[in-house]
Structure formats: structure tokens, C-alpha cells
Nucleic acid binder design. Structure first.
Lengths: 205, 205
DNA sequence: TGTACATCAGTGAACGCGCGTTCACTGATGTAC
DNA sequence: TGTACATCAGTGAACGCGCGTTCACTGATGTAC
């Protein structure tokens, strides 16, 4: 039987750290993720995490990569509810918004963090998310669309859903939405904006 | 002559703290604004700031309020370059983007910060910014527009410019823009998106 | 005009906090013979 | 199969860091008489 590192002491501390980190992320925010807090949460000495991550930044960027991977998966799952390219793009936008509502701190970690030189996995994960978005717009525009047009539409749709998501996460809409049913009102507004955006695309049959 | 508190020792430490805070904000980011750092910057003991602000949160929220006031002024200045309501709205959007480029940390402090119970000045300042945006959209839509329509258009245009601004600030466009002239390319894309948004509004003469 | 007093902005020492990181160590597990 | 050894995940004490905050104080300024 091949030797499995996972079987040494804790079992699989590295994996446990990442899982606990993603939980703690949504509970306490990015700043709440400290190597010591994670060690406490897992009942392990506070120096133990350093066996698996050289420093806190390495841990955070690994978490960000996983967050991006979850995000990309959510976008794909959303898209796959439909078959027509323009409807697929709309569903991707809806999935973007819903991910932001469900996992706000994930989005914050992904976008709002400074990673001076992101490790390959993070760079790849964020690039993959972008490519899903881009492919969705390209498909909705159809094969004839010129590159400049594609670029502009990718930018515009990304900015729209990202802005809506961020305004929600940051609570900036707090005073503009009804206190009861804020979430529902927000979803309605977002969905309507997405539909308007889709309508603005050139028709292609 | 009326007694002026400003003339005691430092001169006007409260005002100086706010001014230094806004400078430090753009140099070091929100996390860099500590009472001790500000005291060092002003050549004053590290306990001195507490004479003017009960705690760090009070200082930060005051800075956020000033940031919002600058932001509102920038939006107004942008708008006032034009007279036609739809052009005024476009200029406001452009001003939003340019403010984000010029003072990214201001925007981060304004939107990205948690103020559990914002003091009146901050609440008023952020509300004022929103009202400028809302008025701009209302004017561009014309007097006949129903409330629901107005609400949807305010949301959509805010989300669009805010999203573009945030993507830029967070560096998320780094890999999608040319390394040379990224700023110019970003402005071009933003401006085009704003024009598309304006074109989507119902015509009114 | 001069003096005694009150005010209060700024001082500097001190406290406790949680953090990241290092280090020699321990002991459980896997491996070689 | 059994024993000696190597590996290395996790330990726990320790270090230094900057931070916010408190406190009795000092001394410059303004005010009252």
C-alpha cells in the first residue's frame, strides 16, 4: 500500500485547514482568517499550520484559488440550465449574483485581496473564471462578432453583475431597499438589469 | 476676539489628523490608517489623536464622510460640464470612474468598510451621493417615468459604473488589458459602456 | 496693566492584546534489512 | 517476523511586532478680576 502522508497524526491537516478556512471566511471575514484561529478551531497547536503553509499569505491565496474554483463551478451550473446562448448568459449573470449573496466573503477574498505575485493555482483559477464569462458572451454574440465588440460586451456585462454584487455585499443598498424582503427586491432588480443587458445584444438566430 | 480652540498647541490637530489621514489613505490603504501612524506623521505623541477622536473607528468614519463629500462634489462637477440631462448623466458616470482611478482608497473606504452604526455625518454624506446619482437618472428619464422604472434605471447605472470602478481598483482587469496603456484602455471601455447605458434610456426631448 | 487661576491639548510611560514566526523537541508512523 | 532506524507532522515555549487604549502629568494659553 502506498504511504499516505494524510495518515500521520492529525489525519489530513492541510485539507482540514483549507476546509476550516473557508468556513471561518464566511463567519469572520478575511481578517478573521489567522493561522492561530484556524489552529484553535482544529484543536491543534498554533505552529502546526506552518508545517503545511510557509506563511499566512500562502494559505490565503490557496483559499482564494478554491473560492474561484467554486465560483467558476457555480457560473457553469447556472449556465447549464439553459441551451440558447443568450439565455445561458443570463443564467450566468444570475448565478454570479447568487454566489455573491450566498458567499459574500468568498467574493471579497477573490477580488478584494492584494496578492503581489499570485501562485499558479490562484492565477489559473481566476483566469478560468474569466474565460467562462468570456465564452458566455462570445456565444451569446454569435460567431460573426468582431473582437472589439466582444471585448466591450464582456467588459459591460462583467461590470454590471460585479457592481450589483459588490453593492449588495458592502451593504450600500441597505437604505435603498425595503428593510423586509431586501434580498428579494435586490434579486428582482438584478435580474431585470441582466435582462436589459441581454436585450441590448445583437439578435442572432 | 472669540477664543479659537485651534490656537492651543499644535494649531489644529483635529483638522491635521483628517488631512493626514486622507493622504495616508491613498498611500497605505485603509489598514494603514492607525492612530499611531497618524501621530508619527504629524510629529505628535501617539496618544494625542485620542483627544480629538474617541477611538479609531470614529476617525475612520469621519474620513469616510469626507471621502463621500469629495465624491459627491466630483460627480456634480462632472455633470455640470453638460446641460442636456442624458449627457449630464453620462458625465456623472465618467466622473465616477475617474474618481475611482484617482482616489481608489477613498472608494474602498467609502464602500468596503463596515460601520455598524454610522455617525450622522457619514450617513448624510453617503445619502447625498446617492441622491445626486438618483437625480441624474430621474432627469435623464424625464418627468413621465414611473417610479419602478426610475428605481430600475438607478440600480442598473449605479451597478455598471460601480462594477467597472471596483474591477479597476481591485486589479481584476490586469490580465485583460494591455500592460502599456491599461488606464487608457479601461477609460475607453468604461466610456463606451456608459454610452450604451445612456442609449438604452427612453428618448425624451 | 498685572496677577492668579482655570482650562485643556498634548505628553510619555505603561498595559494587554493577538498576531506571525522560529526553534529545538517528541513521538507516532513507515521502511530497510 | 522482528528490530533498528529514518522520517516528519505536530508540540509548546519563546520572541518581537504594532496596535488601541488608559492614565496621571505638564505646560501653554485664555480669562477673570
Amino acid at each position: 500500500m502506498p504511504r499516505r502522508k494524510a495518515d500521520y497524526h492529525h489525519g489530513d491537516l492541510r485539507r482540514a485547514l483549507l476546509a476550516a478556512g473557508l468556513e471561518l471566511l464566511e463567519q469572520e471575514g478575511v481578517a478573521g482568517i489567522t493561522t492561530r484561529a484556524l489552529a484553535r478551531k482544529l484543536g491543534v497547536s498554533h505552529a502546526a499550520p506552518h508545517r503545511h503553509f510557509p506563511d499566512r499569505a500562502a494559505l490565503l491565496s490557496e483559499l482564494a484559488a478554491i473560492a474561484f474554483e467554486r465560483f467558476t463551478a457555480a457560473l457553469r451550473t447556472g449556465m447549464d440550465k439553459e441551451t440558447r446562448p443568450d439565455r445561458r448568459l443570463a443564467q450566468m449573470g444570475r448565478a454570479y449574483i447568487r454566489f455573491a449573496i450566498d458567499r459574500p466573503a468568498h467574493l471579497r477574498l477573490m477580488f478584494n485581496q492584494e496578492f503581489p505575485s499570485p501562485p499558479p493555482r490562484l492565477q489559473q483559477a481566476s483566469q478560468a473564471a474569466y474565460e467562462v464569462l468570456e465564452e458566455g458572451v462570445v456565444a451569446a454574440l454569435g460567431p460573426g462578432a468582431p473582437g472589439k465588440r466582444v471585448e466591450a460586451e464582456v467588459f459591460g456585462s462583467w461590470a454590471l453583475v460585479h457592481g450589483a454584487a459588490m453593492l449588495w455585499i458592502d451593504g450600500s443598498l441597505r437604505h435603498q431597499l425595503p428593510p423586509r424582503g431586501a434580498r428579494a427586491a435586490f434579486l428582482k432588480l438584478s435580474d431585470a438589469s441582466i435582462e436589459r443587458m441581454i436585450e441590448g445584444l445583437p439578435k442572432q438566430r
